[in-house]
């Protein structure tokens, strides 16, 4: 039989995790759905569960120097309404699930779930976020793209917990977020796109592009981004189709009950193109 523990402190949580046989249960909005059974029966968890959702020690949003830190149990709704949070994250969270799910689910849980269709995961990539992972043995920091290895697969040892996520404040002229779901709200993404850029006169000094739900992990290619940096708007216009084809090479979506791969690919590229056009015509 599966064991359940509700730690009263973060330290206690780490101790329980050190036994190596517990999985973290945070808001539960992924896990409770995945393992639900017949009503009135216990949820069919496969592992022992550590209920951390009420650990207030991990419920925080703070800012230090250029960085914003978000604790593991902080819910989407708290993040959405917090003054420190960059607009791009808010754009995403406003259309994330529904108010009830936002009150339960957490940003760290969205990352722990490692779905290629995780909306806030996309933004974490865009923000080039890093995770603070801890166990009684050590504390380490991992960039998001190294942490998420594939759909549902993360670089986390059995005794480890994600303590927080943090990222640098952005300084962009404009940010973009589009979620394409089956309906206007309360939907799982079929495709999603986020981007931002900064111009100095007509020169692109910074640009970031993230595309989700079209490959096993979020697409964010620093090499392409680096190649765009330094372009004038004219260069960008000339290189547009090249950039599109570079991204097209990464886009490798699937057919499922929600959409099909042709649509996903086409829409992802449409959104990317619209973004590039927007920069070009902005001048």
């Amino acid at each position: 039989m599966v064991e359940n523990k509700i730690p009263t402190s973060y330290n206690e949580a780490l101790k329980i995790l050190a036994t190596g046989s517990y999985q973290v249960l945070n808001g539960g909005t992924d896990l409770m759905v995945r393992y639900r059974g017949w009503s009135e029966t216990r949820v069919k968890f496969k592992k022992n569960m550590l209920h951390i959702h009420n650990l207030d020690e991990l419920n925080y949003i703070t800012s230090k120097d250029e960085y914003i830190h978000i604790g593991a149990t902080t819910t989407h709704e708290t993040i959405l309404h917090h003054p420190l949070i960059p607009e791009i994250m808010k754009k995403c969270l406003r259309v994330f699930a529904s108010p009830a799910i936002r009150n339960m689910g957490t940003l760290v849980g969205n990352i722990g779930n490692a779905s290629p269709a995780g909306d806030a995961v996309l933004i974490a990539y865009l923000l080039e976020a890093r995770l603070v992972v801890e166990s009684l043995r050590h504390q380490r920091e991992v960039p998001i793209e190294d942490f998420i290895k594939g759909p549902g697969s993360i670089a986390l040892a059995p005794d480890e917990i994600i303590k927080e996520i943090y990222f640098k404040k952005l300084n962009f002229n404009a940010t973009y977020f589009t979620k394409v779901g089956g309906r206007q709200s309360d939907a799982i993404s079929k495709v999603m796109f986020a981007a931002g850029y900064r111009l100095d006169a007509d020169k692109i000094v910074d640009i970031r592009i993230a595309i989700g739900a079209v490959s096993p992990t979020i697409i964010k290619d620093k090499t392409i981004e680096k190649s765009i940096k330094g372009y004038t708007l004219k260069n960008l216009s000339n290189q547009k189709s090249m950039i599109l084809s570079q991204y097209a090479a990464h886009i490798n979506p699937i057919d499922d009950q929600r959409s099909n791969k042709h649509y996903r690919k086409k829409v992802a590229l449409n959104l990317l193109e619209a973004f590039l056009n927007d920069i070009i015509t902005r001048s």
Binding site: N4, I6, L25, G27, G28, T29, M32, V33, R36, V43, M49, H51, H53, N54, E77, S98, P99, A100, I101, N103, M104
Partner: peptide, 23 residues
């Protein structure tokens, strides 16, 4: 949302709320 309740004043879906979170 048929199961929606308020927890500390916040709306939540009780069908996927683990009892452990209610403590």
């Amino acid at each position: 949302g048929a199961c929606s309740v308020l927890m500390d004043g916040y709306i939540v879906q009780s069908c996927i709320l683990p009892l452990g979170s209610v403590h």
